[in-house]
Simulated assay, not measured.
Amino acid sequence: MTEVKICGLRTAEAARTAARIGADYAGFVFAPSKRQVTAAEARALIAAMRESGEGTKAVGVFVNLERETLVRIMAEAPLQVVQLHGQETPELCRWVKETFPGVRVWKASPIASGDSQRADLQDAVKLRLDRYAGVIDALLIDTHDPVYGGGSGKTFAWEVIPAYLAWCRQHGIPLLAAGGLTPDNVGELAGRYAVDGVDVSSGVETDGMKDLDKMRSFVERVRRIV
């Protein structure tokens, strides 16, 4: 089954809805962003989410994470996944896993506009990612954003997905895809490329706020995929 992550939650209503509609993961952004939350806000949102069920896991999203920052946030907000969207090293990924046993580490890999044209894409993926083998629990591919690291709301060339999927299969970890996904296009991506998970933020928003009907529609479209 393709898993669903709804990212950038900022209200208790949206957090409760994410759990109620069966999202597998709820993302809380700690990096500079219009969706950024504090540790205290995340704690309250996670508590609200738990009111609607225990099945949705809390994901903290960071860009160029500093160790002291994560220690402080984890003391307040019970995150189950740490998603790293910057230039974090394999050593930092390993430190997260060793310091917070049971917490999963996801590493984001940005997809540049020219990647789909590379004849050596498979080799480039290996060169970029092999050093993370064994120290991350999932890989997330997202459209490159030079400012925020991700969350641009823009799609990338989906033709690159098989190269990343092959790397993930080789190392026994899931592949998640983000970048410009909406209820209208997520079924095509997940159905065509068999990714293990999809990640959405702006695609389920209206006027910059989470749209509860769009959230439901997104999850429903994914669940229809056989």
Rank of each mutant, 00 (worst) to 15 (best):
F156T: 01
Q170A: 15
A190M: 07
A39M: 09
V4K: 01
P78H: 06
V195P: 01
A42F: 09
D137T: 08
V147S: 12
S217V: 05
I111C: 02
L212M: 10
E205I: 05
G203P: 04
A26W: 05
R20S: 11
I111H: 00
E220G: 01
R221C: 04
A19S: 14
V222N: 00
N64T: 13
E76Y: 03
L79G: 07
G22L: 09
V147I: 13
G53Q: 08
L175A: 05
C7I: 03
A190W: 00
F28H: 01
V160H: 00
R43D: 11
F156K: 01
V96W: 05
F28A: 04
V135S: 07
V198I: 02
S217W: 12
A23R: 08
G153H: 02
E66Y: 12
T56W: 01
K34F: 10
V186N: 10
T56C: 13
E76L: 12
L84G: 00
D211V: 02
A18N: 01
I161E: 00
K126H: 15
G114L: 14
I46S: 02
R169D: 07
A133I: 06
E54L: 11
V37F: 09
E159C: 03
L45N: 00
A47I: 04
G22N: 02
G22E: 01
D196F: 05
I21S: 04
L181M: 09
F28C: 03
T99F: 11
V29M: 06
A44N: 11
A15H: 03
E98W: 00
R35E: 03
P32D: 14
D120H: 08
G151W: 00
Q36P: 01
G53E: 03
V186W: 03
A40V: 15
E88C: 04
D213S: 14
T11W: 09
G134P: 07
D24Y: 04
S152K: 06
R221Y: 06
D142L: 10
